[in-house]
């Protein structure tokens, strides 16, 4: 208690006042900081940079905490001391970023509103390359953003997609006509999700399918090669001659492949 009161006394006597004192050396950072919502935080610099008061006197970098240089646990703790109580945090522990020790400051620019260039691509370089394929979502044109489909803070759904509206996959955000519910559901759409058939980042297939040809995609389930009772998808297209190109293109007839309101075979 005595120590605490001494610290308080020293604080009252000190000339230190954030962010004005900090601006003396870090004017560019503090200048940009004034534009964002963090500027409204009392003692804004000290909130993250523990030891800022001592650093202002010693000018020794070792005296002040820099979250960027901390390990995952400590860096997160620094941000979550304020941001723990946020809705975005609710699914974080289930998210890959939390498990891979990707901290808040990896993606967020704390001092400015300017986003880090190519934020997601800095780690997901292979995914960025997928968007260079001929058929892709319009990431480069700004038509979509990574966060439109992915909940980067964490997930409450059972896969890596963000939830939109109610507990629906993020794809439904734009593809509302595929939402349903349909009277006749195509089971994998609900149970495997869109990525069961589609490669959403980019593909050489005009419908961004996981396979080059439509029938190969469908045959993955509709083959009847297993007698295992616990495996679904035993539906054989019994009367279909798979060597006939007219029959081979499944979605020519099964037009309502995502689900139909009027036909069990998804024909209309």
């Amino acid at each position: 208690m005595a120590l605490l009161s001494q610290e308080k006394k020293e604080a009252e006597q000190s000339d230190y006042k954030a962010p004005d004192t900090c601006a003396g050396c870090h004017d560019e950072i503090v200048g940009a900081f004034g534009k964002i919502r963090h500027a409204g935080v009392k003692n804004s610099c000290d909130s993250c940079h523990t030891g800022a008061r001592k650093h202002s006197e010693s000018v020794d970098p070792a005296d002040v905490q820099n979250p960027v240089k901390l390990n995952g646990l400590a860096a997160d703790k620094s941000c979550l001391s304020c941001h723990q109580n946020q809705a975005t945090h609710a699914g974080r522990i289930r998210g890959g970023h939390a498990r891979s020790a990707v901290t808040c400051v990896t993606c967020h620019s704390i001092h400015t509103t300017a986003k880090k260039p190519d934020n997601c691509g800095q780690c997901h370089a292979g995914t960025v390359a997928e968007f260079q394929r001929p058929y892709k979502h319009g990431l480069a044109t700004g038509a979509v953003k990574c966060a439109d489909c992915h909940n980067v803070h964490g997930r409450t759904l059972g896969n890596s997609f963000a939830a939109t509206s109610a507990n629906e996959p993020g794809c439904n955000k734009c593809h509302g006509d595929k939402r349903g519910p349909f009277v006749f559901e195509h089971a994998p759409v609900r149970q495997e999700g869109c990525s069961g058939c589609h490669e959403p980042h980019g593909s050489a297939n005009p419908r961004m399918l996981n396979r080059a040809e439509v029938h190969l995609q469908c045959l993955e389930c509709h083959t009847n090669t297993t007698n295992n009772a616990s495996v679904s998808g035993t539906t054989p297209p019994a009367f279909h001659n798979l060597r006939d190109p007219r029959i081979k293109n499944c979605t020519t007839c099964h037009v309502k492949i995502h689900g139909s309101h009027v036909n069990r075979a998804l024909l209309r």
């Binding site: 559901e185 089971a187 149970q191 509709h222 009847n224 007698n227 009772a229 616990s230 495996v231 679904s232 998808g233 035993t234 539906t235 054989p236 019994a238 069990r264």
Partner: peptide
């Protein structure tokens, strides 16, 4: 656990059950 309507030649009855 999931189940959906099975195909014409499903050996699992009306419904295909999956686990």
């Amino acid at each position: 656990d999931g189940s959906s309507r099975g195909g014409l030649f499903s050996t699992n009855g009306i419904f295909d059950a999956g686990k």
